[in-house]
Computed example of a mutant assay.
Amino acid sequence: MRDEEILAEFRAADALLEGHFILSSGLRSPRYLQCARVLMNGARAERLARALADKLPASIRDSIDAVISPAMGGVIIGHEMGRALGKPAMFVERPDGTFHLRRGFALEPGQRVLMVEDVVTTGLSSKEAIAAIEEAGGKVVGAASLVDRSSGSVDLGVPFIPLIRIDVPTYAADDLPAELAAIPAIKPGSRAAA
């Protein structure tokens, strides 16, 4: 799937938003990709997950035992990736502010895991999810996401494969350009801003 086709999927779902957004990292942005909207259509979610699965190097795709994603944003794409790869899909969640496997999800020691996210900007949630997977006994062999907003700068400590890289500027709240400062900010994500 080419970048134009991927962006067309976001546009068709009204999931490519323009305005003043507060990201989970606390940074501000003039554009926001609402992955929940693009994934709410099952056929679209399946197409995007299959395209992402096809981008994985064979060394990762053929070696994983399970797919694990962080809740909330990664749950749908993680499930769809599990389906595309024919592997069980689980998720970690933050009942006490720290990611853990719950709901009867468990890993055997050394199980090889692909960690899957919806969007990566700073990589904080991904790194926290990877730490939780390792704490549960898994070995993270790769990470994947629908969107890389980090401008290619994120280092998750494992190979990282995004479906698309989108370079959208981000700003500190106290260093906004005038046109962004003039628009009321909204927080569309699932995690409280840092």
Rank of each mutant, 00 (worst) to 15 (best):
A185R: 14
F105I: 10
F160N: 03
P159E: 02
K55C: 04
G86W: 08
L7Q: 00
A178K: 13
S24K: 10
P88T: 09
A181K: 15
Y32W: 15
V38S: 09
V75C: 04
G42C: 09
L52C: 08
E80T: 12
R11A: 10
A182N: 07
T170S: 12
I130P: 01
A58C: 03
R47W: 00
A43M: 06
D3M: 00
L17I: 09
A43E: 15
G78C: 04
T98V: 15
I64W: 02
Y32G: 15
H79D: 10
I186C: 14
E128K: 13
I76C: 10
G97N: 00
T122C: 06
A12L: 06
S150L: 02
V158W: 02
A181V: 08
I183G: 05
I133G: 04
T121Y: 02
A71E: 13
T122Y: 08
D65Q: 07
M1F: 11
A172F: 08
F99S: 04
G152T: 00
E4L: 00
E46K: 15
V140M: 01
A143H: 04
D167H: 09
D65E: 08
A181F: 09
E179D: 15
T98K: 15
E9T: 05
A173C: 11
V158T: 03
E9A: 15
G123M: 05
A178H: 07
A185I: 10
V141L: 15
I161S: 01
I133N: 03
D14C: 06
L107T: 10
A192T: 14
G86S: 11
F21K: 14
D148E: 03
E134Y: 05
L156W: 03
A89P: 12
D14T: 10
L114V: 03
L163A: 00
D96L: 12
G73L: 07
A194F: 09
V119S: 06
R165E: 11
L180R: 05
L16P: 07
A182V: 06
K87D: 02
N41C: 11
F99I: 05
E108F: 07
P70S: 07
D62T: 08
D3L: 00
D54C: 02
V116Q: 01
L52W: 06
G97C: 00
G82I: 01
R83P: 11
A192P: 15
C35E: 08
K87T: 02
P159V: 01
I161D: 01
A84Q: 12
L146Q: 07
V92A: 13
V140G: 01
C35S: 15
G42W: 09
L17R: 15
